[in-house]
Every structure is written in C-alpha cells, then in structure tokens.
Design a binder for these strands. Structure first.
Lengths: 220, 220
DNA sequence: TCTATATTCAATAGATCACTTGAATGTTTA
DNA sequence: TAAACATTCAAGTGATCTATTGAATATAGA
C-alpha cells in the first residue's frame, strides 16, 4: 500500500517548487536561459563550486526543469523547455506584487527616481524596424557574443559611463540584460536617467526575446 | 553592508517557491482557492493538526501568497489574489509535462482507459446555455453549498454509482471538482466511462470557473 | 597505456524544516 | 469576571538541505 495518488501528485508538484526554492538554483536557471552550458561554465558564472553546482543541477534535473547530454567529457545542461521560464516569471510577478521587501529593493535600484514602464518586446521590435531607438545590451561579452538583439550596442556595466557620454540626449534608449531576474538593465536605466538621458528598460531579457521567436545576432 | 540587491531579490523569489515546496501547503492553498477559511476548518479539511496548519499558514503569509484578517476570535485566511492560482497551475503543467512519474499517476487514475481531452470552461458555458449537458460537482457538500456551477448535480464520490445509474447513456456529462490539483473529477470520469457513459472532465475546477468571472450558485 | 580533464559520488557538519506537545494570548460569551 | 474557544507561540526531535572536502568515474588525447 503506497501513498494515495493525490499525495503522490502533491509530492511531485512540491518537488518542482522545491527545485526553485534556492537562490543558487534560480541563478543557475537564469544562466541556462541564455543557452545550454557545461557545469564548469555555470559554476564560474554563478560563483558556486563545481561539486555544489553539479549537485544543484542534478536536483533541477530530478524536478524535470533541465535535461543533460554528454558531449565528449563534458556534460551539457539545458532548460527542458520555456515553460520553466514562464514558471520563473510568474514566481517573480507574485513576489513583486505581494512582498513589500521586493518593492523596496526594486525602488532602491532606481535610486528613488520614478521609473517609466518597461518597453514591451513588440514595441521594441517595431521601433527597431524604423530605426528610431538605441538598444544597449548590458551583459558580459561572452553572452553578448553568443546571441544579442540585432543592432544592440554591447555596454557592460563598467563601460556604461563612457558609452553614455557618446549618446544623443534626444535619442530613445532601451537597455536589456539576461532577463527579469537580472538587475543590470535596472541599474543602467537608473544611471542613464540620472544623466538626463531618455532610457527605458526592455520587458524581459534576451531569453524572452528569443522565446517570442524574434531574430538574434551573434558575433563572428 | 548587507547582501547585494541581486542576492536579496533571489532570496525573496526563493521564499515564494519555498512556500509552494511542501505538499501540506499546496493542499492548504487548494482549499483556500475554494474561498476564504478559518484555521480550524482548514486543519480539518487537510488533516493537519491545528498548530501545524497555523504554522504553514504563517509561512504562506510570509511569502505573500495568503493574507489574513481577524473575525471575532477566528482568523480568516484567504488567497492574496489569483496570480497564486496561475503560479500553482504553471507548477502543475511543468510537472505533468516533464516528470514521467506524474504521467504514470495520472494514467493510473484513469485505469488505463484513454481519456478524452478536458472540456474548456468556455465550451461548458456554451453547452450549459443550450442545456445540452449534465454537470456533476464531485466536491463535499459544504463546498458545493458555498458555490457551484449553476445547474450542477451534487455528486460526492460515495454517491457516484447511484447517480450514474440515473443518467441517460446518451447524455453528455461533464464532471468537475476543486481544481487541477483535485483528483475527484479524474476518478469520476474514469468510473463513468467504465460504465459506458459519455463523461469528460472540466478543465480546472470551481476556482478557475469563478476566476473567469462566470456565475456561480449557492445553496439557500 | 598513462595522464589530464570534466563531472559526479560519498561522507560530513551545520542550518533549516516539519511536526508534536503543552503553554500562552486574545476574544467572545456566560 | 470567569470560562470557553480559536489561534499562536515556544521548545524539542527527527528528517532534510546546503555546501565542503576528497575520492571515484569516465573520456580524450599523448
């Protein structure tokens, strides 16, 4: 006599939630959303030790959120599908709307300035088509190289001031980064607006852009 | 020097996921989706002890998924909003698509029979309007009494055989229960189809029906 | 075959979690 | 004011989780 089917189902659902219930694993998922990756690269990106990162990845795999394949001596992990992206996004939305602490952190990120609503991906696509917008990609160079929004200017945080100086004050600027869990775009927009520039944040990041089926460019 | 804003945000998101990461709390949320409720009723419905249930509820409140108010000597808890419903539904969908064990449990529930796709709520509403469908509500009597789909026949599991005998074999039958986490409708449809009746399951349950803004009836 | 590399396993310590028990709090009713 | 009630708090136990360490496995290339 095993457990009831109801209890068994709830345990499985809880297992999936459990997989999302550690900051380290959310971080890993954010990076996997950029594209598949081996363990050591993920460990380096997230700052976790190899063994720890490997164990988190196995927990994510047990919950069905990622899958893996072997490639030579490397094991390449990838997100199972972008339903996981939807799950993470709903998680974020619930946290933002229901937890005062989250609202405070987000407000602090913009240094008390009023921030305009983010630009939808559809709107950005339309503006790009008519060439009426400057797009800034705030991610590290390797992520920019592997995929970015066509025409985007690579602007890692440490180059922001320099690039900001070269921007036309009248231009409309849209900044994006890894996605809704990434704060680079928030910080960039806050900094640019403090300089008097007309900057807004893209809704979502590159993974969401790609999930919409929109074109991306790569370097080389 | 506190933690970085990024880490702080991830911790908050993880806190929300954490709240969903225990079967007991998912069970509580399923009941709260039916409507607000005091601690002792929830404890009775879920089979948890009062103290344990109270502690789970406080954890859900810390994660922003439920809110509470005092009513006399009772504390009434309710879901904060139906974004939580969306979160739970995405959780279930990811589990169903990615975890083989979940698929097995669901298949066992239907006893190996091929089950038809569930009926969408819009389709049921249309059929109801033209009177061409029999709707069965599989939930306990108190939940049926507090809200049900207008015209639904109250059919708790222990009365299913008796009521099935009275149904026209040519009739189209739709069964529903608490929602996607509840298995009564699955079991009922499997039993009815084994008897040769033309039964299907409603997509979602009463909370989803109500979240769509559709009318519900109450007893007395 | 030997060696270097990428990843996983196994064992462990400390932290956190779920649940129980019994006492404490606050509210209504007698 | 006292008694009854609904809920929460506090403390304790066993189980589970996270991260660390060092060893084990598997593969590629010399």
């Amino acid at each position: 006599m095993s457990t009831s089917p109801k209890a068994a189902l709830l345990e499985e659902y809880a297992l999936v939630a459990q997989a999302l219930a550690a900051p380290a694993r959310l971080m890993i998922l954010e990076h996997l959303a950029q594209g598949e990756s081996g363990v050591d690269r993920l460990a380096a990106k997230t700052g976790l030790s190899m063994a720890n990162c490997s164990q988190h990845l196995q927990q994510l795999r047990r919950a069905g959120l990622v899958t893996s394949r072997k490639d030579g001596k490397a094991v390449i992990y990838r997100m199972t599908d972008n339903r996981t992206l939807a799950l993470m996004d709903t998680l974020r939305i619930v946290a933002e709307r229901n937890l005062a602490r989250v609202a405070v952190i987000l407000r602090d990120l913009s240094d008390g300035q009023d921030m305009p609503d983010p630009v939808s991906r559809a709107e950005l696509a339309a503006r790009l088509a008519e060439g009426s917008v400057t797009v800034l990609d705030m991610r590290p160079v390797d992520e920019f190289a592997s995929a970015h929004i066509p025409g985007a200017v690579h602007t890692p945080m440490d180059t922001l001031d320099r690039i900001a100086a070269s921007l036309d004050p009248a231009a409309e600027i849209v900044a994006y980064c890894r996605g809704p869990y990434c704060i680079y775009a928030h910080q960039a927009v806050a900094a640019l607006r403090r300089l008097g520039l007309n900057a807004r944040r893209l809704e979502g990041g590159l993974p969401e852009w790609r999930a919409d089926g929109r074109a991306v460019a790569t370097l080389e």
